[in-house]
């Protein structure tokens, strides 16, 4: 029976030792941060917890997306109870003067990184409510929107494909609305104050 040859690493090295210059491939702190960011983006993209801000009619499409027909949990997405726990803010429909204030509170309570997904044409230009006295026509003046889902209302297929697009954007690092909100905070604040205006009633709902 032939003796089994061991892998070469078990044999003593015969040649003489010599010093070799280590290649100058030092990883800079910036590169390390980039690598870390890539890993973090993978986790962020594949575990999205959402907060439904059910302002308008588009919210009715979400139960379909959550339940067994379309099942968004297979993308790692789950509805969450509070803004502190959530990653995505879903603005399902128009924002009115009254809801904008809550929307801003909710958005600012969420921990970064956070993303905003707006449903339907109402968030783009007011949609069928564009001339209503209390509806704000453009959402992205007040909050940084990462993704719009078209359709009045968007069908569950559209919502699913929108969520998959959002995952793609986050994984490639293109969903940077929250950074934009931090950088241009004054601009957003100015728009928000202009829209909300002066508050005349001071109770627990309007402070």
């Amino acid at each position: 029976m032939p003796k089994k040859q061991l892998p070469s690493r078990f044999y003593p090295v015969k040649h003489e030792m010599q010093t070799v210059e280590a290649p100058a491939e030092k990883i800079s702190p910036q590169q390390r941060a980039e690598t870390w960011e890539k890993i973090a983006q993978y986790f962020r993209a594949n575990s999205l917890w959402m907060l439904n801000y059910c302002t308008g009619c588009c919210a009715i499409e979400l139960p379909l997306v959550m339940t067994s027909r379309f099942d968004m949990e297979r993308l790692g997405m789950m509805p969450m109870a509070t803004p502190r726990q959530a990653d995505i803010l879903l603005v399902t429909g128009y924002a009115s003067l009254k809801t904008l204030r809550r929307l801003i509170y909710t958005y600012e309570q969420m921990g970064t990184p956070k993303y905003v997904v707006a449903f339907g044409p109402c968030a783009v230009n007011g949609g069928i409510y564009h001339d209503a006295y209390a509806v704000l026509n453009r959402l992205d003046l007040y909050l940084p929107v990462d993704l719009y889902i078209a359709g009045c209302m968007p069908k569950p297929e559209a919502v699913m494909s929108g969520f998959m697009k959002l995952i793609e954007l986050i994984e490639s690092g293109k969903a940077t609305g929250w950074k934009d909100y931090e950088q241009r905070y004054e601009w957003y604040k100015k728009n928000q104050l202009e829209a909300v205006g002066e508050v005349f009633i001071h109770d627990e709902f309007h402070e």
Binding site: R44, S47, W49, S68, D71, E73, R74, R84, G111, T112
Partner: peptide, 27 residues
């Protein structure tokens, strides 16, 4: 998820959730 006739997440989803949470900023 299977009991509710859904497909459900991957089995290591909770690890993803924990690492994502540890990567977030909070107050």
């Amino acid at each position: 998820a299977r009991i509710q006739k859904r497909r459900g997440p991957v089995w290591y989803q909770n690890f993803r959730d924990v690492f994502k949470l540890l990567n977030k900023r909070s107050v």
